[in-house]
Design a protein around this nucleic acid. Sequence first.
DNA 1: AGTCATCGTGTAAACGATTACACGATCATC
DNA 2: GATGATCGTGTAATCGTTTACACGATGACT
Lengths: 343, 343
Amino acid sequence: MAGVKDVARLAGVSVATVSRVLNDSAPVTEATRVRVLAAVDELGYRPNAVARSLRTDTTRTIGLVIGDILNPFFTELARAIEDEARASGYSVVIGNADERPERQDHYVRTLLEQRVDGLLLCPTAQITPLVRDVVSGGAPLVFLDRTLPGLDVPTVRADGTAAIGALVSHLAGLGHRRIAFVSGPALLSTGRERTAAFTAALRTAGLPVRPEYLEAGDFQAASGRAAAARLLDLPEPPEVIVAGDNLMTLGALDEIRARGLAVPGDVGIASYDDVPWFTHVDPPVTAIGQPVQELGRRAVRALLERIGGRPVEPVVLDARLVVRRSCGEPGAQGNESEGSGRP
Amino acid sequence: MAGVKDVARLAGVSVATVSRVLNDSAPVTEATRVRVLAAVDELGYRPNAVARSLRTDTTRTIGLVIGDILNPFFTELARAIEDEARASGYSVVIGNADERPERQDHYVRTLLEQRVDGLLLCPTAQITPLVRDVVSGGAPLVFLDRTLPGLDVPTVRADGTAAIGALVSHLAGLGHRRIAFVSGPALLSTGRERTAAFTAALRTAGLPVRPEYLEAGDFQAASGRAAAARLLDLPEPPEVIVAGDNLMTLGALDEIRARGLAVPGDVGIASYDDVPWFTHVDPPVTAIGQPVQELGRRAVRALLERIGGRPVEPVVLDARLVVRRSCGEPGAQGNESEGSGRP
DNA sequence: AGTCATCGTGTAAACGATTACACGATCATC
DNA sequence: GATGATCGTGTAATCGTTTACACGATGACT
């Protein structure tokens, strides 16, 4: 494949000049510029980003390690990140951790070896030694969606405390008293916080906190289904199940459906995370939506700041409740106005 | 950051020996091996993949340009590809074309500049000059899911002809005669083929082919909604709408729901592409499922063959009909057995 | 007219790895 | 014990860029 040298020879200039034209890093006569560009065109020259990166020690690439590529929350996030990064001239390399620490580490390692300029990480439950190394190693790093306790890394995430409060009071208003929550892994901030917010909200609403109604899953569909099964097998099953993310909601719906139970007649369901198809489920699922686009944008901006060597503040945005019909008839609260769910 | 030189110095050997230990590319005394590895560990040395790639002219990376990252079909595909590639020691860099030729080109260009070892491309509707260049340039390239007419590139895809035939005969068996089809872009093989299979199937079933029942969209939700609107506005609207992919199905469902129509009472719906949440829609959506995992696996294997310089045959797999209830009561045909839809 | 910026360009040294080639030591073979 | 194969290791060239430095030409200013 043709290189700068070939271009230089064909255009009758030096390699330095070719480089200058291509990056306009220094003034160049119009005449030589057109000669060089003509040569580039003629040879079908494509700059070798590998060589460039080696020399400049910058790849204009950021790494993104997400929890699960099959989870629409993460793909929407990835998409937003990608858009924002491209606008700033950066490419994004996505790694799918599949919620497994060793796979997360695999990608963190690979991305660092590829010398990405910075790393956006949705950390899995465990703090691995590698992650600890990276943090102390000082590579530009931003946590996304989740924090890890005890690590000093800027984080961009949504806080659902207020929305969960609104959800519980909505449920109480519908007359429900037995409300169960299927949380994520306790090690994850998103797991702990949502559980804490939920129990606090129960207390505020004057409802009892029953330990048997607090289940934990791993943010994957199967665990949601298993948790729902355990809840429904209780001598006094809950009236409503709130699942901690959209995949566990899917799993819970599977279990409910497999048992032939009616929603919300036999049991109601609500989800943390909103996804487009919730509108089409029978009945449409009440959910807490996160400002995914904004999360992605802010994450990229934060990371670029870090790459630029500037300090950044943590970013916390608010999630918001979207009332639909899966927990009972909403009465006067309903305030939906939705399109296809896709822009 | 530490380099081979530092490791070599600390271990008291030459850089060549360090390299030999790290890649075990030549025999090395056990004693020096442990000294080198100790030095690597002590310094937290991470090989610079950029430099390595420059020297070896290989990145052990493949590029994947998908049509739309918000489309579950593509994310499932990406996931399968990623798994297979990782098993062979390759990383995958994903680009999201968003069904836009210029964005596709952006990624093809970027990926080539990054010197990926090969490219997996789900081509958008138009053959861009860049794609033509790449094809004639001889870079390892495999088309995925879709073909472009007139280009000699190995393709891995699913053929839905048989499944569409089965779907139409299923519909005819339910007594439907007015069946509409919302296809993808005519320029895309997936658009053309599905339409052709559909009209052929109508004829086989002895049903009339009515041009006003053949709509076209762009594989995005909004176009599905618009097409459904046009169909439902017809003086004699169809009894069933078959949408050419899952996003257009979503859009069509939105339109049907916005009009307060009952499914399948007022109008039935079926989808090309099956996604997990179709089970939870009211009523569950009859769909044609593609062997996504297998497509991904075969695509990677094909590309690796090409990278190895070996010729490869096109791969065509069969799609299959999954009957649910969105087109009417299935009677005896139903043969579902589904779990959560996620492994 | 002499001095000095400024401008456009070229030459050559990096960047951090891999690897062809060379070289001394060890060992088996005759 | 001389010969030559084999083994472990080191030296230095190389990959394709960018860029520090140098240098001649041009033009402005005194």
